[in-house]
Design a protein around this nucleic acid. Structure first.
Lengths: 203, 203
DNA sequence: CTCTCTAAGTTGACACTGTCAAGATTGATC
DNA sequence: GATCAATCTTGACAGTGTCAACTTAGAGAG
C-alpha cells in the first residue's frame, strides 16, 4: 500500500494483458517448456494463484498466446500479399514467408500449430475463430493460383491447399525441431518445393 | 528375499529392457506427457532411482525408445519395398505407408521426429546412427525414382528428397497433432501430393 | 453514506515431478 | 576370502500445477 501509490496490489486492472506479454516474452526467449505459472506470477509481481482468475488453466493461457500469434500472423500475411509484385514467383514468396515466420518465431509457431494446443481443444472457440481464417486464406490463395495457371487447375483445391500447407509445415517443423539443422538451405528447399508445385508453361 | 526366489530384487538383469518395454507401452497408450519415471519404476517393481543406472536422464530413456522406433521402422519399410509391384504407383504407396505409420503410432512418431529428442541432441550418437539410415534411404529412393522417370530428374536429389519428406512429415504432423481431424481424408491428401510430384508421361 | 455483493488477489496445502547424494546389497574377480 | 564395481535403495530438495478457503477492495443499490 506504500510502494505503489495509484494502484494497490488488488485489482491492478490489466493483469491479464501483463501476463500474456510476460508469458510471450518468456516463451520466445526460453521456450515453452520453461514457462512456469508460478515464476510468471512472481515476475509480474502477483501471487501464485492470481493468474487463475484470468485463465482457467495453464493450457488456456497457452491457447490465448497462440491466439495472439494467429492475429499477428494474419496481419503479416496480408501486408506481404499487398507488397508482392505480380511478376514475382508468388508461390515461392509465400512459402519462404511462411517458413521464415516459423524460423523467426519457433516457439510461438510451435504453440500455434503444435499438439499442446490442438490435442483436446474441441472446446476453445476463441482459438478456433482466430485460427480458421488462416486456414481459409490458404485455401483462397490456392484457388486463386489455380485460376491464374500457377497451380494445377485439375487438382481438388482443398486437397491441394492441404498438401501445400503440409509441405510448408513439414519443412518448418523439421527446421525448428532441430532435424534439418542447416538453416542456410531454407531458400534452396523452398525453391525446390515451389518448382514441384508450379505448372511450367514452356516444356 | 522371500517372494522372488530365483532373482533377488538386486541385479535382476534385464531391467533396462523391461523399462524400455513398459515405457513404450505407457507412451503408446497414454502419451509421452503421461510418462513418469517414478511411476515407471514402481510399475516394473523397482525403486525410484533404479532406472538412473541404465539411463542418465529421462531424456536418454526417450531417446532409446525413439531408437527402437527407427529400428522397427526400418524393417517395415524394407518389407514394404519388397512387396510393392513395379506397376504400382510407388510414390503414392510410399507416402501412404509413411503417413499411416505415423497415424498408427502417433506417440512413437512424435518421439522419433519431435523436438523433445532432437533439440540439444548433438551428443547422442547411438540415436543418430539409428536415424540416419532412414534419412539416407529416402534419398536413395528419390534418386532411384528420378532415374526411373517417376520424379523430376532436373531437380537436385537432396533438395527433392527433403521436400518430399517435408510433405509427408507435415501431413503426418497435422494429422496426429489434431489439426487435420478427418483421418478418412488421408488417402485423398496423399494422392493429391503424389500427383503433384509425379512426372506425367502423357500430357 | 452505508451495505452488500462480487471480482480479484492472497496463503495453505496436496500430490505430483526429476534427480543429487549417500548408503546397502550383490555377483564377479584377484 | 577380500575387494571392487555394478546395481538397487531411501532420504532429501527444489520444483510444478491447482483445489480450497481466506481477505480485500471497488462498484452499485438502498
Amino acid at each position: 500500500m506504500s510502494d505503489s501509490p495509484s494502484k494497490s496490489n488488488y485489482h491492478h486492472g490489466d493483469l491479464r494483458q501483463k501476463l500474456l506479454e510476460a508469458a510471450t516474452e518468456t516463451i520466445k526467449s526460453q521456450g515453452i517448456e520453461a514457462l512456469s505459472l508460478r515464476k510468471l506470477a512472481t515476475e509480474v509481481g502477483v501471487s501464485r494463484m492470481a493468474p487463475y482468475h484470468h485463465f482457467k488453466d495453464k493450457n488456456e493461457l497457452l491457447c490465448a498466446i497462440a491466439e495472439q500469434g494467429f492475429q499477428q500472423r494474419k496481419n503479416t500475411v496480408v501486408d506481404q500479399s499487398q507488397i508482392t509484385n505480380e511478376e514475382d514467383n508468388q508461390l515461392l514468396s509465400y512459402m519462404l514467408n511462411y517458413v521464415r515466420f516459423a524460423q523467426k518465431n519457433p516457439e510461438i509457431y510451435e504453440l500455434m500449430f503444435g499438439r499442446t494446443i490442438w490435442k483436446n481443444q474441441i472446446d476453445n472457440d476463441s482459438l478456433k475463430n482466430a485460427a480458421y481464417p488462416t486456414f481459409q486464406y490458404q485455401l483462397d490463395l490456392t484457388k486463386q493460383w489455380q485460376a491464374n495457371g500457377l497451380l494445377d487447375a485439375n487438382a481438388n483445391s482443398l486437397r491441394l491447399s492441404q498438401v501445400i500447407w503440409g509441405t510448408m509445415h513439414g519443412i518448418a517443423k523439421l527446421l525448428i525441431d532441430g532435424i534439418y539443422t542447416d538453416t542456410s538451405q531454407i531458400e534452396a528447399i523452398c525453391m525446390c518445393a515451389a518448382e514441384q508445385f508450379a505448372i511450367k508453361l514452356e516444356q
